Simulated assay, not measured.
Amino acid sequence: MLSIGEFSKICEVSTKTLRYYDEIGLITPDEINPENGYRFYSIRQLKKMLFINRLKSYHFSLEEIKAILNAEEDQSEERLGIALIRKRMEIQRRADELQYTLKRMYEDIVTLESGLPVMSYYNRIDVQLVETKKVAIVSKRQVLSRDDYAAGYGAYFSRLYETIASEALTLLGTPMTIYHSTEYNPAGNDIEFAIPVREAVDGTRELPGGLCAKAVWKGAYSELTSVYAKLREWTEQEGYILAGLPYEVYVTDPGQAAAFGDIVTEVYVPVRKK
């Protein structure tokens, strides 16, 4: 048996953390002295603690680790494999985001060295006034947080494509999202995932056409706030007011883009003259 101090030293986990892991049922001492409360761990628990440390190094939360440890024995390897694949995809996405951030920082440094302000990119966002046509859409409306939206983007559109296939509908364009919330809420926003189709049938609805301020953005979705700011500035300067729900059309499938900088998104804001 190993004292909590010895176990802590070998696994490089503080005794305070070990006590917390005991409280949440992640790993509990094999033996506790009833007289003095001293905690002891068995040699076999070393491997379990090392496994927990390994999963933590992969950025699994304690809740996720606990679920993996508590899986039925005949399902444990399968669940671990699925969890590792998902976590790897999540970390790869973060790594891509960091790489894109580094690229932007480099561009800002070059911009400053050229004697231009960092925000000069904002003035290069081109706004056009366009007339859009009404179109039928297959859609699903959901209240989602930013993280939920990012994680579920593919899943929601996949379900819509399944509906289109089962109903034998004809695609008319690429996926889009329509934003129903009047303000930003970190806890969740009212978002409608939609795909335009030719047929107006039960289960579809009409997206009205009309006058729109439109801008095209090539880059990460996280930077679309600059596009919306520019569109709002343009409408104010040109004497227009908002006349409907803003929406985004995803010209490029993010899964097919080689990098964040290759993603192309069209942003539309319905407007009318004051």
Score class of each variant (00 low, 15 high):
47 K>W: 06
260 F>T: 09
13 V>N: 12
20 Y>V: 09
237 Q>D: 15
194 A>P: 07
42 S>T: 12
206 E>C: 03
32 I>P: 05
169 L>W: 01
51 F>L: 14
191 I>Q: 10
42 S>G: 14
76 S>K: 15
64 E>T: 00
224 L>Q: 12
63 E>Q: 12
4 I>C: 11
196 P>E: 08
250 Y>Q: 02
111 T>K: 08
54 R>C: 04
238 E>S: 11
268 Y>Q: 02
239 G>W: 09
233 E>C: 06
254 P>I: 09
58 Y>T: 00
180 H>P: 06
146 R>K: 04
209 G>F: 10
63 E>I: 01
98 L>T: 00
176 M>K: 05
148 D>A: 12
270 P>N: 04
149 Y>K: 08
243 A>N: 15
8 S>V: 02
262 D>R: 07
140 K>N: 10
1 M>R: 00
261 G>D: 14
170 T>N: 02
271 V>Q: 02
39 R>H: 14
198 R>D: 04
232 R>L: 12
227 V>R: 07
181 S>Y: 11
37 G>L: 11
103 K>W: 12
218 K>L: 04
155 A>Y: 06
233 E>L: 13
231 L>D: 05
1 M>T: 02
165 A>N: 02
78 E>Y: 05
270 P>K: 10
175 P>Q: 07
6 E>P: 02
103 K>L: 13
132 T>R: 15
178 I>A: 09
86 R>I: 00
127 V>A: 12
24 I>T: 05
140 K>R: 12
200 A>I: 01
35 E>L: 15
131 E>S: 08
70 N>Q: 11
110 V>I: 10
39 R>T: 15
36 N>V: 11
95 A>S: 10
48 K>F: 01
34 P>Y: 05
156 Y>N: 08
9 K>E: 13
15 T>K: 15
64 E>A: 07
172 L>S: 04
119 M>V: 04
112 L>K: 13
59 H>N: 15
182 T>H: 06
236 E>N: 10
17 T>I: 07
6 E>N: 10
7 F>D: 14
24 I>D: 04
87 K>W: 08
122 Y>L: 01
139 S>D: 10
90 E>P: 06
273 K>N: 05
29 P>S: 08
158 S>I: 00
32 I>Y: 04
21 Y>F: 14
44 R>K: 15
160 L>C: 04
223 E>V: 05
114 S>I: 01
79 R>N: 11
122 Y>H: 01
158 S>H: 06
100 Y>L: 07
129 L>A: 11
41 Y>S: 13
80 L>G: 09
95 A>I: 15
246 P>C: 02
14 S>D: 05
130 V>Y: 03
60 F>I: 00
9 K>A: 11
48 K>H: 07
176 M>N: 03
131 E>Y: 09
21 Y>P: 09
188 G>H: 09
99 Q>R: 09
177 T>A: 11
31 E>K: 06
209 G>M: 08
88 R>P: 00
268 Y>N: 02
220 A>C: 12
65 I>G: 01
77 E>M: 06
212 C>S: 03
7 F>R: 07
162 E>G: 01
92 Q>F: 09
82 I>A: 04
145 S>M: 04
177 T>F: 07
4 I>V: 14
227 V>P: 05
236 E>L: 13
133 K>F: 03
191 I>E: 07
65 I>T: 02
62 L>G: 03
29 P>W: 06
45 Q>R: 12
